[in-house]
Every structure is written in C-alpha cells, then in structure tokens.
Design a protein around this nucleic acid. Sequence first.
DNA 1: AAATCTCTTTCCAGCGCTGTACATTATCGG
DNA 2: CCGATAATGTACAGCGCTGGAAAGAGATTT
Lengths: 347, 347
Amino acid sequence: MDRTELDGIDMARVRLIDVAELAGVSMKTVSNVVHSYPHVAPALRKKVQAAIDQLGYRPNLTARRLATGKTGMIALAIPEIDHPYFSELSRHMAEEATRRGYRVIIEQTLSDPDLERAVLSDREAGLVDGVIFHPVRMETLDIAKLDAGTPLVLLGEAAMPVMTDHVMIDNVAAALDATRHLLASGCRRIAFLGVIAADITGSTKQRLLGYQQGLLEANVPLDPELVFTAQEFTAEAGLRSVTEAIERGMRFDGVVCRDDRFAIGALKALHDSGRSVPEDVAVVGWDNTFLAAYTSPTLTSVAPKKTALVAAAFDLLEERIAGYRGVGRHVIVGHSLELRESAPRTP
Amino acid sequence: MDRTELDGIDMARVRLIDVAELAGVSMKTVSNVVHSYPHVAPALRKKVQAAIDQLGYRPNLTARRLATGKTGMIALAIPEIDHPYFSELSRHMAEEATRRGYRVIIEQTLSDPDLERAVLSDREAGLVDGVIFHPVRMETLDIAKLDAGTPLVLLGEAAMPVMTDHVMIDNVAAALDATRHLLASGCRRIAFLGVIAADITGSTKQRLLGYQQGLLEANVPLDPELVFTAQEFTAEAGLRSVTEAIERGMRFDGVVCRDDRFAIGALKALHDSGRSVPEDVAVVGWDNTFLAAYTSPTLTSVAPKKTALVAAAFDLLEERIAGYRGVGRHVIVGHSLELRESAPRTP
DNA sequence: AAATCTCTTTCCAGCGCTGTACATTATCGG
DNA sequence: CCGATAATGTACAGCGCTGGAAAGAGATTT
C-alpha cells in the first residue's frame, strides 16, 4: 500500500516532484494548485490536492525563498528580550508582522557594540527581507558606515543617520511633560534616575535634556547631585542608586525615571526607607509597561504609542523593501503621560 | 574604478561567482576560503580574501541552506512573548542557541488552538532544524497526530505524547512544596488562584493537584470555594478574581498562585482591600520571574531551574536533529521555592 | 473544415551555494 | 631522478522551488 511508504522509517521529505508523479502531472501544476492559481481545471485540482494530502506534502520554504528572492522574514534587533518594554514591543511587532505576512526573528544585542554591529554586517545576508533595529551603543556614524543595503528601520534615539529611516517619540518633549507634571504637583527637588555610570546613551541624553528644560522653565535651579547614576539597566541597579542617594542624605521630592524598571527599583528603595509615594516623593516611570499598573502604588509613566510606533516602522520598512531608495524618513509618534498613583493628577 | 561599481544605485548582491571571477579562481575555492577550509595556499587565500573584502561579499544563507539542508535555526513556540516567564525563557533560549550556533525564531501562539496547530503543521517546513514548543491548548493526542517529523521538544505539562521528547518540572511536587510551606507558616484556609473559567489547562491541573495533596496530607479539608477562577491569564484577571472573593466574604489566609502575574494581581487586590501580606494572607507565586523581587512585599515564588530546563531542551533537540528516532524522553528538571516576604521562612 | 482564440498544462532554466569526483601540482623517500 | 603520496584547485551536478515560454486542447468563428 502507499500508506506503508508514508510510514517509512524516515518519512523522508516529500517534494513537489513526488506529488507531481503521484498525481501524474507536472511540477508546475502542483505548484499552481499549492498557490491557488486560478486557471487549473477543477478535476485536476482535486486530483492534485488528493496527492498532496495523501503524501502530506509541505512546500520547502527555503527552496521557495531561493527561487523567489523573498524570505518573508524580518529581523527585530533589540537589546534585551526580557526587558518589559522590549518584550511588549516584540509582541506588537510579532502581531503586526503576522498581519502583514511576515515572520519575525529576534536578535538580542545585549547592548553590546559588537553584537549590534553584527546585526548590520554579515549576519543577516539573504536571511531576512528587512531589519528593524533598536540600537543602544552604535551611533549615527557607525550605522551609516555599516548599513549594507538590507532595508533597515531604526528605533529609538541612539542614532539617526540621514539616509536611514527612523521612528521614535519626542523624548525631550516627553521628559518635559513628566517634569512639568511633577512641578505642577508641587515638587521642587526633582531627581532624574537612569544615567548609566560614565556612559550616557542617546535616549537617556534626550530625556535628561527634557528634564532639565522643565526645571529651567520653572526657575528651579539644576542640581547635578540630583542626577542619579546607576550601574546598569536593571531594577536592582535603580534600587541601589536611590538607596545610596537616601543614605547620602540627599533630599528630593520627585523622581523622573528613565524607564519603568528603574522606577520599580526606586519605588522599592523609597518603600524600604520608609518614605511614602507620592506624599514624600512622587515618581514617574517611562514606557508604561504592564508593570506600571501593578506596582504599589501604581506608577505614573510616560507612554509611547506603541502600536503607532510599530505600524510606522513597518510602513517604512515595507516601502524600503518595495524599493524606495531615498533619504531617511524620520517619523515621530505620539506619547502621553499615564497618570497613576505614584504621581497623580493634581486637584 | 571598481569602487564606482560598488556604489552602484542598487549595490546589487554580490555572489560567490562574482568573487571567484574577480580573484580568478573557482567558486569552490572562494567557498573554501569563506569556510576556512585548511588546504588553501596562503597566497591564494589572501587574494581571495581581498576580492571578498573589495566586493563586500556576504554568503547568501538561503542558498547555503538549500544546498546543505541545515538551516541553523530553531523555532521557539510560546503562548505570549511578553509574559514575564516566557520572555525570560526566551532570553535564555536565545543565549543558549547562540552558544550552540543556532538562531531562534519565535512563534507566538497566544494559546490559540489553531495557531498552536500551525506550529506543528505547515508553518515550519524546511525553515528550521527543530522546534521547541510550549503548548497550552493542544493535548497529547493532537500533537501525536500532527507531529510531522521535524525534530520537536515539548515544554510544559499540557501534552506529552509517548514518541515526543519533553521537558518539565514536577508541578505536583512543586505545588505540594508551596502548599506545605504555607501550612507550615500556620495558614489553614489556603486558596488556589489561576483556574481559567471552565477550561483547566494541563499545567494548572497538576498544580491544583499538588495543592490539594498538600491540604489532604495535613488533614485540612478541601473547600472548592477556595479555588479561585480567573477569566484569563493576566494580572488584571487575577486581581478581579481575588477582589471578588473578598467581596463575597471569602475568608482565607494563604494563596497559591498559578503564576507570578496572578500573584501580583492578588497582592494588589489584598493591598487595595486593606489586608496585609503576609500577616493576614500569605502569597506564593510561580515562575520566580524578576517581578517577584520587586513587588511590595516581595514575592515568594516557585522557581523552575530555567537554565537547566533550557539546556535539557536543547540537548534533546540536538539529539533529534542528529538523527535520534527513538521513543520520547521525558526529563524533569529541578525547582525550588524562593522564599521572600510574601510568605517568609517560618522561624 | 480550416483558422483563430483562449484556457490549461508542461518544459526547463535558473536562484546561490556546497559536496563529490576528478585534475593538477607539490613533496618526498628510496 | 622516478613513482607514489599528499596537498591544492576545478568542474559540475544537484538542493526544491518558481517564472516565463511554449506547447496542447478545446471552443468559437468564418
């Protein structure tokens, strides 16, 4: 019986030509059936479909790719897949990709300059149709130099070469919003948490700038001591940073955090030291990850419009894939400040 | 100049044969250089390398795959990429994959039976060398039927067909540990949070079982009312479930949660209702995600040995890829109970 | 009944790379 | 200084699929 062939020890891969032979037609006809090409006689279509089912045929995607030149995959390169912001972003990306008929392969750069470089250089050749990349360490020039021709869209603020497309939120404005909000709530000694020891990244720089602008326009003097430094991008480091500030005797009544992870570190540090939020210290996070809704108190947070960001990135990327070769487009998507308990609306 | 060719409008893809022509050698020699094949005369190697550099040649991975039959990629299919447990798992997977020379493509099933089926059926054909799959809805039989020959390793407890490899922790034992710990702390009215309305999944079933065993062995009567039902797998649903229980007037002094997300929902519900943790109610989470260390109070949580789990899954998968065809191996990796404030060590 | 169309189906040349088989030197002991 | 062994290099047939050209088969027209 033919079934026995199917259940052969290795169930060897069934190819187009196997189906063709069984159905007594040409490979191309089978291919036409697989692709629902309209001009196939119904009787033949049925016969071919039967052969496909009987053999359990699955097209080999690699071969298809080689033949068509399209891979149907895009790479998403992010620093850390388990950072809440990036995992939420990944989820949106994966869903949008599915909607648009792509699949996503995720590259983790760990904010390592070499791994970031690898994203742009040899790694992806012919593997993906395009790359969406959120750099942390690489700067404008590095990227301009390496950009090899694969359609590319950049995320974040670290780099923005003239020729490359780019999507971000207005970080300065967002930080300004956050700072103004704290000022309006009566804070006067506002700290900024999230500078990484001796190595300020592009995004942080802009957020810090917005924070400073906010203070200046309210005539609150800048105090460099209020810029808290952390060792790395973790909640733990945020906690330590704030704890040390408290132990140093720093006085402050508000904190703008570079991201939600730092913010939950800060909340814990404040809680552990017996300060209450927002009464003693108001806290604003950044990214509006799901964490923000579940901390105690809940966390006011800068909320980038993630779905808009994802859609914009895909729009640009698809235009590049379709052949657009012009200068880089730089799109800014909206943001809002999600008010919660840690820095509530002022009455 | 040759440079102008490089900077041509489209920087057309450079192929092996282009390099070969420029260097005046055969394609195979270039290929040998690319692969650092030892028997290539140093002088030639240098010449070829120069041609590679000059043209900026990158091997086309799709073509390589078609020729070799290996893709160097594995698929990781998980319910939700932004569930903390899965994003942490993904990170470990990505890192282990890199270490072993693979790249990971992540499939999100959203716990949807159709998407889960798609993982096993047509989607991955010829795209990946193997699949690591954490099913939620598909059960043993569904999987056994669809398992198409691509090397496959299952995670979790939802399904375990005889022929398929499988890695998990001992959920019954872990739930038993958690329950015993609460009992030892003096709890007597212990709830279980995490059954999804009218549709209990494999993992939940086992955890529930361990919880019940724990109560029985301590001669604490089972109260079905103490099994709290949630609408879906979110912190929000956990919060609502606990809040409703409180409003119904349920009395309880401990909660074993099906995962950390439910646990933070529970913590918030308890906090909002004025109960203090662990004094009034002790709480145990599950998965020991980074959240557990940053809630207030911090969360005692069942901790699967994630790195062991990842390593075991890869070991099994690589054996399958290497050709192992035998019956399924079922490996159980260790777990522990990470004690934190929400259910501290008893004096 | 021949000529013309239109719809179906087949043929076959790649896509870019690798593996195998073979051709061509170099190297070396005797 | 020769044949044998090892070291290098080349040729070319696939891997499985698709796209376009061309052939075959009916249907329609004159």
